[in-house]
Design a binder for these strands. Structure first.
Lengths: 173, 173
DNA sequence: TTATCCCTTCCTAACGGTCGTTAGTTAATA
DNA sequence: TATTAACTAACGACCGTTAGGAAGGGATAA
């Protein structure tokens, strides 16, 4: 049940944001009454905190276990359309509620650092490894943005063009 | 006064989103009582609509009057830190309220198209003009994201790296 | 010039509704 | 028997919004 609530909350937070989502909506989606939520979470803030932390950890693990740079990029495409928790991670990073703003910004920074580390690890040593890492995060962010309010089609186009340029710039060898 | 309200609303909507901003906050920032807003706007929705439309039009004009691709990129950096209306345009595009979602998505798409048109106009004819246009919007979006929740410093780094790669890929001639 | 009227813009008071939350109870489980 | 997780009822706070009135300015007519 605790997990069910978390999932329902995740997809609602992802779509309407923290302020735009009410406990009434969440409980209705789960199929229980509003006060029942308090048997599992002591406040709306704490519920959101749990949801976000889960989302963040899961996404962080995914990056750290990635084996190929292109596959990682490509995975964002279906992840966005399939995984509410991931969408929640995205939306919360783009638009964090006030009471968690600082922590979320800190964690998103850690996320970008993890991406850069991954690039430096997987890419053949090159003189411009630093550029390659920055450029990779640029592509990731732009892909995420496009996923948020563009079409799937445009996202795929972006991925294709970006990867072609990226390869050409950093993987000539 | 109508203009004053709009500005106050813009900076609050930019920071807290539509759902996260109350008319009480707006009126307090302006220095009037909450119901006085209704002398100028007939509802919170209409107020937001005006603010967003202003923000969008202003930003669209800016793009259409741009003369250099690099300058346009660079302008986003200070624009974000100086112009609440621009921040509101950004935040609203990233996280539109439900009642305007469709229109906002449509307009953001128009915005990206305007960017692509600008690239094709300003760039020397090349065989991969289409790629250059897509890549430019990638850079813009990633820059905007970084501005939203990164540091100014990181944004500048991104701009520098992205532009170097961009020039090298599309402006060799 | 003065008096009248209208219109705009602010105000106070209050509305119904929804918010997050708490208290207190009941039913089931271990 | 003690604990957990669901419920109903209700709380105070805040939400967007409306009603109704006061103050001021501008135009018009005496």
């Amino acid at each position: 049940m605790k997990e069910t609530i978390k999932q329902a909350a995740a997809s609602l937070f992802a779509e309407y944001g923290y302020a735009g989502t009410s406990l009434a909506q969440i409980s209705e989606k789960v199929g229980i009454k509003k006060p029942s939520i308090y048997a599992h979470y002591k406040s709306k803030e704490q519920l959101f905190e749990c949801v976000f932390q889960d989302a963040f950890n899961e996404e962080m693990n995914r990056v750290e276990q990635a084996g190929h740079l292109y596959n990682l990029l490509e995975s964002y495409l279906f992840l966005y359309s399939e995984d509410p928790l991931f969408r929640c991670f995205l939306a919360s990073s783009f638009f964090p509620p006030d009471f968690l703003k600082e922590r979320i910004l800190r964690q998103y920074e850690a996320y970008l650092h993890a991406l850069e580390r991954k690039v430096k690890l997987l890419l053949k040593p090159a003189e411009n490894l630093e550029d390659a890492a920055v450029m990779y995060t640029i592509i990731v962010d732009s892909l995420l943005v496009e996923l948020c309010y563009g079409t799937r089609e445009r996202s795929e186009k972006r991925l294709e063009v970006a990867w072609r340029i990226y390869k050409q710039s950093f993987m000539k060898g």
